[in-house]
Structures are given as structure tokens and as C-alpha cells.
């Protein structure tokens, strides 16, 4: 008898949890789904219903929205974002791995102090370096180019990633490296041939995070890029909502969706690394 009651209350508890998880899940992604659906609706219909199924499906919101405002299309902005993001991701991955290797596998004077310094810059708010960095890049003639994004990436300027790689490298056994040393490999060959393949999961999650952060970034493009032909997706999208006086809601929604697609693709194709990456380092946002 008692077991039966227990079973019942257990079942009831599970139903309650599922009901909550589902209701909350709908609440969480409804706005995203609604914007997606609305990008196919007519402008008259958009704010009249909460429905996720358009009454009349229109696709010209994508065609018209893609044309952008004036002479540059959304294609330009996407191309620009890609030419900015890809070098940033690649250089971040390379520089962070090399620096992490130095911290994880070598003993040298002041190492602990330097490592602590690096960790503490993780907590340095960007605002503390903002103005002089801008002045420096302006003086170098880098404003309105992508160099303020790409060049710092060469120098391991995201300490989060260095820390993440150091943690990962520390977890790898040293035996392989020792035998490779005996075989005559130098330390750089060990990094390239032995450690890099083992670090693949960590490197992938680093690339994913850097891609998404740089792709979503709005503030830095806003201050460094000032000609529309060099606008990134986030600047282009911001311009679309600023500039439309006769409001073509469905075009804005279509371009909002377009701007999110790269992040979605990356997220779903590499979800495993995503979750691992956050869990091992615990990252921002």
C-alpha cells in the first residue's frame, strides 16, 4: 500500500517537473520562434496575432531586406563580418595555444607571478583600456579597418582562452612528450605533432566561443568602423532598425534571423564542445 502511494507521488512529481520544464521552455524560445514566423508574415499581420503560422506566407521580406538600405546589401555586411571574424578566430586559437603551452609545460622565473597577472586581467573591465586603445589605433591609422580586432588576436589578448588551454594541457599526461623528446623532437614539434591533436576538443570550443562573441559584438565595431561599406552584420542590423521610417517589420525580422543563422549552425554542429567548454572554464555572458 505504502509503495503504491510512493509510486503515485513519484509519478505526480515527475509530471509536475515536466510540465514546468516544457512551459518554461516554450516561454524561453517563443520570442525566437515568433520572430522567425513573423519574418514570413505580411506587415499587417505581424502584431495582430501571436500565432507561429503565417496566414499568408511571404518570402519577399528576405529579398527586400537583403537589399539593405541604400547601396550596400546585407550580403556585404555578412561578407565583412566573415572577413573580420575568421582571422580573429584563427589567430586567437594559435596565439592562445602557444602561450598556454609556455605556461603549462615550462618552468621559468616569475612564472607564477605572470600567470596570476594573466588571470587577473580576465577581470579587468574593458572600459579601463577603452579610450587609450582607441587613441592608439587611431594614431596607427587603423580606425575604419579590421586591424583593431585582428592584430590583438595575434597576441593572446583574451586571457579566458589561455586559461582554458592551460587547464586542458595540465590534464594531459606527460609521458608521450617525454618519449618524443628522447626520439629527438624539439619542444615546438611536440606542441604541433603531439599536443595539438590531443587538444582538439579544447581548441574547437575556443574557436566556437571566439566566433560567436566576435560575431555578436556590437560595441567594438560601432567605435572602430565608420563607413557603411565596411559595416559588420550587427552594425548593418542596427542601421536597418534606425533607418526604416516606413516600417517594414517583416524585413527587419528577416534580417534579424539571417544575422543569427551562423551562430545557430555553429551551436548545433558543435554542441558537445560548447557545453564542455563552458563547464570546464566557466565563461562570461
Amino acid at each position: 500500500m505504502e509503495a503504491k502511494i510512493n509510486y503515485k507521488s513519484e509519478l505526480f512529481r515527475k509530471i509536475l517537473i515536466y510540465a514546468f520544464l516544457i512551459a518554461f521552455g516554450i516561454f524561453m524560445i517563443y520570442p525566437l520562434l515568433w520572430v522567425f514566423a513573423s519574418s514570413f508574415k505580411t506587415n499587417d499581420e505581424i502584431f495582430k496575432s501571436l500565432s507561429l503560422i503565417p496566414k499568408h506566407i511571404v518570402a519577399n521580406s528576405y529579398i527586400e531586406g537583403w537589399k539593405g538600405t541604400g547601396q550596400y546589401s546585407f550580403g556585404t555586411f555578412i561578407f565583412n563580418s566573415i572577413t573580420l571574424v575568421i582571422p580573429v578566430v584563427v589567430f586567437t586559437a594559435i596565439s592562445s595555444t602557444i602561450v598556454a603551452y609556455g605556461f603549462a609545460r615550462f618552468e621559468f622565473p616569475l612564472k607564477n607571478i605572470l600567470f596570476t597577472l594573466m588571470i587577473s586581467t580576465m577581470m579587468l573591465p574593458g572600459t579601463a583600456v577603452l579610450i587609450p586603445r582607441y587613441i592608439l589605433f587611431n594614431w596607427l591609422g587603423w580606425v575604419n579597418t579590421y586591424k583593431p580586432f585582428i592584430v590583438p588576436a595575434l597576441f593572446g589578448t583574451t586571457p579566458f582562452f589561455i586559461f582554458m588551454m592551460v587547464q586542458f594541457l595540465r590534464g594531459l599526461p606527460k609521458e608521450l612528450e617525454e618519449s618524443a623528446t628522447i626520439d629527438g623532437c624539439n619542444s615546438f614539434q611536440i606542441l604541433i605533432k603531439i599536443l595539438m591533436p590531443l587538444c582538439k576538443p579544447a581548441i574547437i570550443s575556443m574557436c566556437i566561443f571566439q566566433f560567436i562573441w566576435t560575431w555578436n559584438d556590437f560595441f567594438n565595431p560601432l567605435i572602430y568602423i565608420n563607413s557603411v561599406e565596411k559595416y559588420t552584420v550587427s552594425l548593418g542590423l542596427n542601421m536597418t532598425i534606425d533607418g526604416t521610417s516606413v516600417v517594414n517589420w517583416n524585413q527587419i525580422m528577416a534580417m534579424t534571423i539571417i544575422s543569427m543563422i551562423p551562430s545557430i549552425i555553429i551551436f548545433f554542429s558543435a554542441q558537445k564542445y560548447f557545453v564542455e567548454g563552458i563547464a570546464t572554464t566557466g565563461l562570461k555572458n
Partner: peptide, 23 residues
């Protein structure tokens, strides 16, 4: 090996000086 260690972390040291400490 000490020197090598510094060599590997040198990108970060340069980046730290130019893009963090100086600004």
C-alpha cells in the same frame, strides 16, 4: 628551457604591455 618558456609566452607579454598595461 627557461628561455623557451619565455619565448612561448612572449606573444602574451607583448600583447599585455601594448594592449592592456599601456592603455
Amino acid at each position: 628551457r627557461n628561455l623557451l618558456g619565455y619565448l612561448y609566452i612572449s606573444p602574451w607579454i607583448i600583447g599585455f604591455l601594448i594592449f592592456t598595461l599601456y592603455p
